[in-house]
Design a protein around this nucleic acid. Structure first.
Lengths: 247, 247
DNA sequence: CTCGCGAGGTGGTATAGTCCGCTATCCAGC
DNA sequence: GCTGGATAGCGGACTATACCACCTCGCGAG
């Protein structure tokens, strides 16, 4: 009845179990509030050790899909807020998760000498080369955000060879250059739209906007990009899921 | 040279190691970019198994304090953004971490029949009783935010017996009632300050504000509170640290 | 009838290993 | 000088086992 795990896959066993459980939850096969199989049961069912099954459940809790009670069990969380909490994804993926069709209008793409501030954020030397990318980002064809990226040139020297109106920056970095994102720092603030950005966004200057400043780090600890995104306040809300870091 | 671990403590060994390493990093004893002791070295130094040492390092990575490279080692992260990323803390703790002195002005505290929307967010029945708390929140004596909380009465029937101008709601729930927060969903958006809130915040009506809507869940999966906080955009920026959930 | 206690379940912590893929280093051989 | 191989060290994944604290539930003693 149960498709077994692929022990020759490069996907770790705990990730495979995690994926199966996530599917069951997403499809509603386990109702909110209902118990998920216990660590010991998963271990037996899939022929893995308990510690491996445990990792799968721990990851699901981290994502907010389940909650766990000592002495009781693990249960599907009943949350009212949107499930697609921004887990380190770019605009393209973010919009897709919200059921919108993302597109872009290229404003600027060129090599520049990096400024003091950006160099500081990226942890590179002042005067180094970066790609400066500015795009108007649309959802279902209407303006949603104005995004400005800075990426060190040495990470991706041929970035200007891609069609950044149709392609995702993160896809290029990840799939074409093997640069995997590991973590990010974000600062969110409210502000008034400056005149030039307001024009692109089709809103009046001074309208409220949500400004998201993000520095993304790769799995070698180096900064991959610094990006500043100005969202129309009337069309975008940022969602997060926070977890107390008790493993 | 090294203070050993307390094996009789209720604090898990991995948490003790985690704390020691965190101290060393915070105090700058290990410079950013410098290697942290390896799993095997920690295991030997503290007389624990490697898996235990591993948990400590994993938790530090989750917090963004270190990054790990296979085949190389674990290193202190060099980040430019503030360290105090909002890890599921309330206003009081948030301000303290920012080096500000928090205080409050009580606007409203009463029992109410819960509305449809709040009931939905809290996962309780419409018509149930909740405490409705509204406070103006100050940092170093000047208005910072306007906060509106809803807490189910049955979680904390004597909430109105406390001095909520001087006390922290989360402290009361946690220390006096044993209600521990486990996770939270947050929605952040930019907006214009409504007239009544603007007056409390000492800003002009229509000024941009950062609105944070948060639902906090306890470790039994039940919603603890629904809170809506309106921050002055000129005084507050929300910071997050996001991690790819590969444990 | 109620109370208490234990059996058996759960997640949390910890041990002690194995195997793997990756990286840096260093040295021998070309 | 450069290349290739051995080696040592690293984190990642996984196993098998054990004990703990906690909870629920049912059974038996009073």
């Amino acid at each position: 009845m149960e498709r077994p795990l692929d022990r020759n896959s490069y996907v770790p066993l705990y990730a495979q179990i995690q994926q199966k459980l996530r599917q069951m939850i997403d499809r509603g096969e386990i109702a909110p509030g209902a118990p998920v199989p216990s660590e010991r049961e998963l271990a037996e069912r899939y022929g893995v050790s308990r510690m491996t099954a445990r990792q799968a459940l721990r990851a699901l809790r981290q994502d907010g899909l389940v909650y766990r009670e000592r002495g009781i069990g693990t249960f599907v969380a009943r949350r009212k807020v949107d499930l697609h909490t921004r887990n380190l994804v770019g605009f393209t993926e973010d919009m897709r998760l919200r059921g919108l069709r993302p597109s872009s209008k290229l404003i600027l793409l060129r090599r520049e000498k990096v400024t003091q501030q950006i160099a500081n954020e990226l942890g590179i030397e002042v005067g180094g080369d970066v790609f400066h990318l500015e795009r108007l980002r649309l959802a279902d064809g209407t303006p949603m955000a104005y995004e400005s990226n800075y990426v060190p040139v040495d990470l991706c020297p041929d970035l200007d060879q891609y069609d950044l109106e149709r392609d995702s920056l993160y896809r290029i970095l990840e799939e074409e250059h093997g640069i995997r994102m590991q973590s990010a720092d974000e600062i969110l603030e409210a502000a008034r739209a400056p005149r030039d950005k307001a024009r692109y966004l089709s809103i009046r200057a001074g309208s409220p906007v949500l400004v998201v400043h993000r520095v993304v780090y790769g799995d070698n600890g180096r900064a991959i990009e610094s990006v500043r995104t100005i969202y129309r306040a009337d069309r975008y809300r940022a969602t997060f899921h926070l977890t107390k870091n008790t493993l």
